[in-house]
Amino acid sequence: MLNDVTIFDFETTGLSGQNDRVIEMAALRVVNGEIVTEFETLVRLDGRELPPKITEITGIRPEMLVSAMDETIAFKMLRLIMGDSLLVAHNAAFDLQFLHWAMQRIGGKTFSNPFIDTLTISRARHTYPHKLENMCERYGIKLDGAHRALNDVRATWELLKAMHLEESVEPWINRLGYLSKYPPPAWVPEHATTFATENRYEPRNAG
C-alpha cells in the first residue's frame, strides 16, 4: 500500500472540521517512491472572518484569500489527486475530519481511503514532544516554514520514509491514537481503529 500514497495537510480557521474552514491545502501524490503530483492552493473564505490568531500562526492574511481558489474546486481537485491512494498526515484525525466535512458539504459523501497517521506512530515510538517540527528534528529532516501546508506535506513525506526505514509502518494503517486525558476525536472514518494512549517522557536527571 505504501507504493501509492497521498500526503496532505490543511491550514484552517480553527479546530472544528464541521464548523471551521480550510484556508490552505497541499498534497503530494507519490507512486513507487516518486512524487508524481504536487498541489498547493489557498482557499477562499467567502465572507467568513480569518481569526488574527491564525494569521499569527500561519502568516496567511485575509487579503491573501480574496482571490484564492473556491472551496468546491479546491476539494474536487484534491480528491482527484488522492484517488484511492493511502492517505498520510501528521495528526491525521484533524485533517481527515476536515476532508470528511468538506466532502459532506460539497457532495453529501465521504471517503473510504485507508490512512496512516504519523503522529500516532510518533507517540508509540518516541518520547514527548511529537509535533511535526519535533519529529523532523529527531530524524534530521529539514522543515522550513512550519504551518504552511506544502512545507508540512514535504516534511511529513520525509518523516514517513524515515519511520518506514526504521520499522515498517504498515501495521499502523487505519489506526488512530488519541491522548487519554482528552475525549476521542469527534469524527473518525468508519474503518479507523481508535485507541487511547499516553505521552511518554524522558526520565528526569537524578542530579
Rank of each mutant, 00 (worst) to 15 (best):
S85T: 04
D95W: 08
F94Y: 15
S112L: 10
S112D: 15
L96Q: 11
E71L: 07
G107K: 00
I73A: 11
G83K: 01
G83R: 04
M77V: 12
A93K: 02
D95T: 09
T110M: 01
I116H: 09
L96M: 11
A93G: 13
M77R: 15
N91W: 10
S112P: 03
A89I: 05
I106C: 03
H100W: 10
L80E: 15
F94T: 10
F115V: 14
G83T: 02
A102H: 14
N91G: 12
D70T: 02
F111H: 11
N113V: 09
I106Q: 04
A93M: 05
A92F: 05
L87W: 08
T118F: 06
W101P: 03
F115E: 15
V88C: 01
I73S: 07
F94V: 13
A89W: 01
I106D: 07
D70N: 07
V88R: 01
F111E: 05
P114R: 15
L99A: 07
H100P: 11
A89M: 00
A89N: 03
G107Q: 10
W101A: 08
L80M: 13
W101N: 12
A102Y: 02
F111M: 13
V88F: 04
L78A: 13
P114C: 15
I73D: 04
D95L: 07
T110K: 02
T118A: 09
N91P: 01
I73R: 14
Q97I: 06
F115D: 14
G107D: 13
L119A: 06
G107F: 00
T110C: 02
F111V: 11
N91S: 12
V88N: 00
L80I: 13
L78P: 05
M82S: 08
L80V: 10
L80T: 14
S112R: 14
L87I: 04
H90L: 06
A89T: 03
M103I: 06
W101T: 01
E71W: 04
T72S: 14
A93T: 09
R105Y: 06
G108P: 08
A93Q: 11
D70C: 02
L119S: 04
R105D: 10
S112H: 14
M82K: 01
Q97N: 15
F94R: 12
I116G: 04
M77P: 00
H90C: 05
L99T: 07
D70L: 04
L99R: 07
Q104G: 01
A93W: 02
L80D: 14
L99Q: 09
N91D: 12
N91A: 14
T110W: 05
G108Y: 03
L119T: 05
G83E: 01
L99D: 04
I81Y: 07
V88A: 00
